[in-house]
Write a protein that binds this DNA or RNA. Structure first.
Lengths: 204, 204
DNA sequence: GGTATATGACTGCTGGGTAAGTTACCACGC
DNA sequence: GCGTGGTAACTTACCCAGCAGTCATATACC
């Protein structure tokens, strides 16, 4: 006796994994890898720590699983938009819109790939690199297009501008997290207004 | 006997404190609060951990001291520029130029105020808030000016745009850290080119 | 009885923080 | 010039909390 709950919940592994990944993604995305403890995730899920180790092997494994699930989602969507025919600033806006729509309800996901407290070596770093590179490549491609239209082909300029662009997306995502009442659609409209304030009415 | 180094270095407290703050700021700025250990800072300074606790009381105290020294520097400079007569995008560019000039040689300082791994409650959070607010206020003021010129007075738009602006500065600082050979002057020229690529030649 | 779903109670390590003592140096009286 | 006591600078060796990770065991169901 003495362990009245052991084994009695009967939740199928896949369901449980999904639930754990949801909670872990939110915690990692909100507080960062270093500041998130496995015990906290277990508590929030209403289960014990060893079950997480059973299913994901380690804290690193758990984080990797979050990355893989979230990364595929985000990178696929950005790739889909990149295959569209929008160019220059329009492509940027289309990407933003896609992200807002995709990440509505899981806004913290974005931050997984830009977590400075995550390990910088080992499998986690590799996994981060895979998705950050996929996203970064697409961003760089779009930026290069934009800069090319303006007659600038300097590689360092493109690199810096890519960094700025990712920083912009990042800020918007963070701002969105802090303003939970904003819908994806509202965010998109807001971004269009911000763009207008900078470049003027001309460019759509 | 047996402690051949105890007390023999004779470095005045103020000198030692400055040295410790230099090293700690770089570590905190580079790896974040959570990932930086006091022992590492002590090692890099060539002294023992207790001396740091002697002078700064705690890890939090050390971080706070870094914040206070760096925050005053950065906030003062931004304030100085804000008192100038540049307006709108020009003011933004002037601020960027000031930051590049000021932070040349200590580029990591900027990141102290935007460290997601720093405690979110207690004296550290308060201190961060003081400087982040000072910087944020000035940024918001400049952004409100810019948006006003474009006929947009929406408070949430201004808030979001301020977040984007700070994100842009942040990205540029991070990019700069990753490209150590770039001089402050080169960075400034680069930013002007990036601006041109977005808004066109019109606005200087 | 075999397997999937679970848990309480442990271990070991890392890192913040501390107690107590050591060395150098200066000021002062003689 | 020379003991002597006070103080600033500094260290070794330790404590302890929190957290990643593990082991043995328990329940439920086919």
């Amino acid at each position: 006796m003495a362990r009245p709950n052991a084994g009695t919940k009967g939740v199928p592994r896949l369901d449980r994994e999904t639930q754990i990944l949801d909670i872990a993604s939110e915690q990692f995305g909100t507080y960062g890898f270093a500041a998130t403890s496995v015990a906290t995730v277990a508590d929030l899920a209403g289960i014990s720590k060893p079950l997480i180790y059973n299913y994901f092997g380690s804290k690193d494994g758990l984080f990797e699983a979050c990355l893989d699930r979230g990364g595929a989602l985000v990178a696929d969507e950005i790739e889909r938009i990149a295959r569209g025919d929008a160019v220059g600033i329009q492509r940027g806006m289309a990407t933003l819109g896609g992200m807002f729509a995709l990440l509505d309800g899981r806004r913290h996901l974005w931050r997984l790939f830009f977590d400075p407290s995550a390990p910088t070596t080992g499998p986690i770093a590799d996994s981060v690199t895979v998705y950050a590179d996929r996203i970064g490549k697409l961003a760089e491609e779009g930026v290069a297009e934009l800069m090319g239209l303006a007659g600038n082909d300097d590689l360092l300029d493109i690199s810096a501008m890519t960094s700025v662009w990712l920083g912009i997306v990042d800020s918007l995502m963070n701002w969105w997290v802090e303003h939970p009442n904003e819908s994806a659609e509202q965010m998109m409209q807001r971004c269009l207004r911000l763009l207008t304030a900078i470049v003027g009415e001309g460019e759509k």
